[in-house]
Simulated scan of single mutants.
Amino acid sequence: MGGTEHLDIQREGATLVLTLNRPEAKNALSLPMLVGLYDGWVEADADDSIRSVVFTGAGDSFCAGMDLKALAGKGTGGERYRDRLTADPDLHWKAMLRHYRPRKPVIAAVEGYCVAGGTEMLQGTDIRVAGESATFGLFEVKRGLFPIGGSTVRLQRQIPRTHALEMLLTGRPYTAREAADIGLVGHVVPDGTALDKALEIAELVNGCGPLAVEAVKASVYETAEMTETDGLAAELKRGWPIFDTADAKEGARAFAEKRSPDYKRM
């Protein structure tokens, strides 16, 4: 199992836990962190025994955004990762889930600051849990910058446009309760328990048929911008083959026999 000095990768059963690990800098993005993140997403998709991913941050923050010095590989031990970025100039966007969508469900567990690049990465996750004291926001315009991690495209598709524009154009912070009210996060839990709740949700996902879960996730994103007619046709194309799998038959047998199913990804 990989990871870097700024990104921890651990297994919790069938869940891969990716932890931003630069707490002294509120987990601001660094080159070692981005390399580790990208490798984590790839590992999750390549290993069929992994059924879900939990994405979180060490210490009292999720991610406070970019650290331009660290992203250049200066002063944080990142120099030895420069060849990775040279070989794949798109690596940082893939790590931040701008140009990469894992096929496994990704559940975010947020404590503390999740701002700027943190809020941008959040939009690449599927299910989101926040501690009560978490803070969200896209602060770029306050600094004369542009939130180029995908927020001007994705945010309006995930929350009502009026809320998306307010967040984008004011650069103000949002509390966890506000984030839940506008639909940016799905759960607000007591501080210090976001990871526990995320792992609890992951266990529910892990208990379902993996082929079905991955097909459902793919269908949701694939059809998001289609017309209803085209979307329904695409859903049938992706969904019908699931009924012919051994896992689908196992699910029916397990239900009839009142036991937990033993899915084999077949």
Rank of each mutant, 00 (worst) to 15 (best):
M1K: 04
T4A: 14
H6K: 04
L7W: 13
T15S: 09
L18I: 12
L20N: 11
N21Y: 09
R22V: 10
A25G: 06
N27I: 12
L34C: 08
D39W: 09
D39R: 13
D45P: 07
S49R: 13
S61Y: 08
S61Q: 08
M66R: 13
L68Y: 10
G77F: 12
E79H: 00
E79Y: 00
Y81I: 07
R82G: 01
R84W: 09
L85Q: 11
D90S: 12
L91S: 01
W93E: 15
E111S: 12
Y113F: 10
G118Y: 05
T119Q: 04
E120I: 05
E120A: 11
G124T: 04
T125G: 02
T125L: 02
D126T: 14
T135V: 07
L138V: 11
V141R: 13
R143H: 10
F146G: 00
G150P: 00
T152V: 14
L155N: 06
R157I: 01
T162K: 10
H163W: 11
A164L: 02
L165P: 00
E166N: 09
M167V: 09
G171N: 12
T175A: 02
A176H: 11
R177F: 11
E178S: 05
L184E: 04
V188P: 08
V189P: 10
G192I: 11
T193G: 06
A194V: 04
D196H: 13
I201E: 07
A202R: 01
A212N: 07
V213C: 06
A215W: 03
A215H: 04
S219W: 10
A224Q: 12
E225H: 08
E225L: 14
M226D: 12
T227Y: 00
G231H: 01
G239A: 15
F243W: 04
A246L: 13
K249I: 04
A256T: 05
E257S: 01
